[in-house]
Design a protein around this nucleic acid. Sequence first.
DNA 1: ATCAACACTATACGAATGTATAGCATAATA
DNA 2: TATTATGCTATACATTCGTATAGTGTTGAT
Lengths: 202, 202
Amino acid sequence: MKKTVGVSPKVNSDLTAKARIRNAAFALYANYGEDATSMRAIAEAAGVTVGLVVHHFRTKDGLREAIEQHIVDLFFGAIEQAPLEGTTPEIAAARDEAVADMLSDNPAVVGYLRRALLDPMGHRGRILEMLTDLTAKQVATLRNVGVASKAQRDSSQVIGVMIRQLGQLFLQPMVDSMWNQLAGPNAAEDDKPLLVVKVQES
Amino acid sequence: MKKTVGVSPKVNSDLTAKARIRNAAFALYANYGEDATSMRAIAEAAGVTVGLVVHHFRTKDGLREAIEQHIVDLFFGAIEQAPLEGTTPEIAAARDEAVADMLSDNPAVVGYLRRALLDPMGHRGRILEMLTDLTAKQVATLRNVGVASKAQRDSSQVIGVMIRQLGQLFLQPMVDSMWNQLAGPNAAEDDKPLLVVKVQES
DNA sequence: ATCAACACTATACGAATGTATAGCATAATA
DNA sequence: TATTATGCTATACATTCGTATAGTGTTGAT
């Protein structure tokens, strides 16, 4: 395997064709959805032919698996690099911020997850399970080091983390769209109402 | 394996074929999305042939327009029948409840709107604009009768109404899915964390 | 230098899609 | 009763889809 230690993953031209294909498909899926994205559109966006897409990923299912694994890697990388020092809320805040930074660096993640998670039952992939598992393992790890608050049940805390980090991102487009229609495009951004999404113990 | 989604055949049996087709398409779109639903699947679910679908709605776009108009009618009908008596918060509560009842009677509305509203950019229909308009007009009407609270700006209140009524419905499946995976299918439902979605003045 | 593995293109095929058209039966209208 | 409109079926067509296959050039190990 050819290594791609170009250290600049943003520059697409330095990437292997396989990575370029995955990135192109990722962006298209995030913007238009998997159903509305053809293999030919992916190939064209990546600057290759359809045959090469099939060669590297075999099927469209394989392509989605690669994309979803990539998303999990991004989450893992973000959480991993958050520092483990300070008080419990400080640690939680640091982890939340690391993930928030990753999401803002990779907008396709938000778009893809919004589409995948709004359809939790019928979705063909397993990205929600994978991310829930990842978050649960992280919470468990923190607990074992004695960091996390033990006041909440495990499940509640995991759900809280996911919803806090993703819920707002999913609903915000709806708020923005309505705000644009109601207040006009040149209204003061400061007046836009603030969206609050959280979960609380029942 | 032929599975009927959403619509009970009893209610369906004395409807016109045109209404049956719209209802079938509505339920399928809500469950699987428009892209994943073929005209032939709609025809089969409605017990007719493809030709009749085309005969009544011309194109797939026409079918979506009919569905979205039907949704607006359902909202309008629900709001219209809410009583205009009592204190301001009582009126607001009555309207919220009327809409909540309608949504619980028509689960396809929730499913359809979840898909349409979480995908505000790529969506081909105009259902978000239509519903925002409808809600805005309702708020204006109440204001003219001197009912609504004037503390909030118009836009904020409209967005608040929409988000309160729909936001939770959209995110709840994600919470449920995670709760199932983390706590198991036979965990006490009472322990499931509560989802909170709201907007506040900035 | 040879040979095998790999990256990649080109073309083709069957299935499924949205839509168009022609025809049939029944009910309304004259 | 004759005619016209309407609800509906059946079939066909062009396009697009995912995927399979065969082939070309290039790289890397022996």
